[in-house]
Design a protein around this nucleic acid. Structure first.
Lengths: 159, 159
DNA sequence: AGAATTCCGAGTGAATCGGTAGGATTTTCG
DNA sequence: CGAAAATCCTACCGATTCACTCGGAATTCT
């Protein structure tokens, strides 16, 4: 249950861009220096974030990267999914999983718990924006959909 | 954010043992057949679960494995941690992480979100017992400690 | 005795991961 | 213009990990 360094590095780069938001573009070399990341590797990650439309690159002298949206409008979930692929502890919990394509599904007892794990990860990642991270705040977005009932209970009991 | 096949297979094997609990020991070959898992690979996983004290093996004819505790007293979290290692999206969220050993910790903005991801995964895994899976029920154990506030909120708002 | 089973440790092929290398293109500035 | 600084693009690569196999020893029941 580790997150790849791709997602980890990429998110760190995005927090730097969030801090720099409003000023000019931030050079990749600068991000790499501040965060202590290998520049050429980070280059690949930025390319994917750019293709996904989260950042744009400006070439030439004084070039660099900028966020295409305000930091409060970009969730950690977006960033992670681009670099990490879909959040799915097991294949049959991925969004693109065709119901029934695992022939064991009818008598599979373990799927439900992985499904709840996935949903709870999604909930955290989608509730948190880059701005939240910069402000050192917990996730500010309330996520509406189906949450694990066991967790909802705990939340309510706690009052 | 995938779970290894070790944990996945191991949990499936444990659900079979949970179903068989109370009867005699269940042979590994039988588990492998029913679950469609490679027997010799599963053998390794069972060895780890045995060394951890979750199952015991009985050799010889009509031998096999049995759970050492009732299925309602074994959580999915225990099983997964044995086979998967500690749940930690990034190293600095592991239990054995010495605070401050990552020199970037003071200005690391991303750690908090990984910490909340870890806690929410733990919450799901520790709330669910093998008996819950057999009964097709959600996690029955309420987990007391610190849950992500954002999620608690959602739980309460939903009433 | 013999069959069925768990136990044990080494080995292996392929995939993935984290990272590098080299160069082309674009932009700014003197 | 021409040099410097930056992004873009594509291929490669070494190490590790992963999922799995193999061979055999020890144990237990019939």
């Amino acid at each position: 249950m580790k997150v790849s360094s791709r997602a980890h590095y990429g998110l760190r780069a995005m927090t730097e861009l969030a801090k720099a938001f409003g000023g000019g573009p931030l050079a990749l070399s600068e991000i790499a220096r501040v965060e202590g990341l290998p520049a050429t590797y980070l280059e690949q990650l930025m390319a994917e974030l750019r293709k996904a439309g989260l950042v744009e690159g400006l070439r030439g002298l004084h070039g660099g990267y900028t966020l295409t949206r305000r930091p409060s409008q970009i969730t950690v979930g977006e960033v992670v999914r681009i670099l990490e692929g879909p959040i799915a502890p097991v294949d049959c919990t991925a969004e693109d999983y065709a119901a029934g394509s695992c022939h064991r599904e009818p008598d599979c007892l373990s799927r439900s718990v992985w499904q709840r794990v996935k949903e709870s990860i999604d909930a955290v990642l989608d509730a948190t924006t880059l701005q939240d991270l910069v402000d050192g705040r917990e996730g500010s977005r309330t996520v509406l959909p189906t949450l694990p009932i066991s967790i909802q209970k705990v939340g309510c009991y706690s009052r």
